[in-house]
Design a protein around this nucleic acid. Structure first.
Lengths: 213, 213
DNA sequence: GTCTATAAAAGGATAGAC
DNA sequence: GTCTATCCTTTTATAGAC
């Protein structure tokens, strides 16, 4: 299978998916994230992939298996860039601002919105997926930031007696009203100005709340 | 119909729903909020209501109509207590603490969790419901708090140059990691200790960020 | 591995009697 | 208004040929 994929990669044009399997993944991702698990039909997925339905079943066995594969991959792909701290040296305010900007951009992206809605909507049927999302996203982000805040406290730049709690508070501040509107699908158009303002407000408030006495 | 309901109320025991219509509403609420729109079948709803399927259709016409009726009612019922300011006199810290406690209790309640998941999962199919939820919940709460914060600023108790922005930040702080875990269905057991801690952290940080210079 | 064709079941909605 | 019985579309999944 690996050899097949490699050969196809070399021969096919870049527009077309390299293999049937990749085509299925692409099609299933589009349909599942666009419509949700319940409203997505295997026919629609096969058609979006340009493949017969039986081919889909040959590769993934069943609908729920396919859904799990798609969602798990998306969790890893999408949330990874949001949780890196980047350059930890420099002014604390600047570092926090950078982290906040990347986090907000990541969680507000249309792809992440669709992923989150799909997971939340099926959290009772696929609890493991909800857990995977939480660990790859919010939990990891908070853990990474908590490590950084621990150092910040040690250096005496800010007073952070409880890094874990403060890290969670920081990201909560970033999941603001704009995030809520986007989760609910109310705000369609990307609004960079509001996102920038939001980041500034959150970072300022966070620093003010953790200033050394 | 009203007379029928009144008569039934007087005669029936308190355990049983007063009318067929109320029984349908109760059953549909249970099924829709428990399983989501897609996974809920009209058969299951009829069975949960103790009524034939045709009776359900006679009252509500179609599945989507029934869903809308259920969700809209739940939005009004559930979110109303969360958005009252209550006694606006007294220490600012105490008032904010009260508001925060009520808000957290409301949004973390199992009923609200189920409602939110159902709406988010079907936000593309029922955008009006997502909008109704937003206006009855997050938007209304922020508006009410913004009014209070405007007065607080005028009295000079805190520095709140932008009440709307600050109100949104306040509630964002309350939708913390615990809220995220509950939305994703990870945290099953109610954890009052963590909720109390969370409220304290948020209120302290908010006041510190808005202290007069 | 991939396709066409088909089975088998579930679910939304309706007909007609009472 | 309410029930039983039924229709018909959609959808998951499989059989069998190439």
């Amino acid at each position: 299978m690996a050899a097949d994929t490699a050969a196809a990669t070399a021969l096919e044009s870049e527009e077309e998916p390299v293999s049937k399997r990749d085509a299925i993944i692409a099609g299933a991702t589009e349909i599942f994230l666009g419509a949700g698990y319940g409203a997505a039909s295997m026919d629609a997925i096969a058609q979006a992939a340009g493949v017969s339905k039986q081919t889909v079943y040959a590769h993934f066995g069943a609908k729920d298996t396919l859904f799990e594969a798609i969602i798990r991959q998306k969790c890893d792909d999408l949330l990874a860039p949001a949780v890196t701290v980047g350059t930890e040296d420099g002014d604390v305010g600047q570092v926090l601002h950078d982290i906040a900007e990347r986090f907000v951009n990541a969680i507000l992206s249309p792809e992440n919105m669709k992923l989150f809605r799909a997971i939340v909507g099926e959290s009772s049927r696929f609890p493991e997926l909800a857990d995977a999302f939480y660990r790859a996203g919010p939990r990891l982000a908070a853990d990474v930031l908590a490590d950084y805040l621990f150092d910040v406290d040690a250096k005496g730049e800010l007073a952070v007696p409880n890094p874990k709690s403060s890290a969670e508070l920081f990201f909560a501040m970033l999941r603001n009203d704009l995030y809520m509107r986007r989760v609910l699908g109310i705000e369609r158009v990307p609004c960079p100005n509001e996102a920038d303002t939001l980041v500034g407000v959150a970072v300022s408030a966070f620093i003010a709340a953790h200033r050394k006495t």
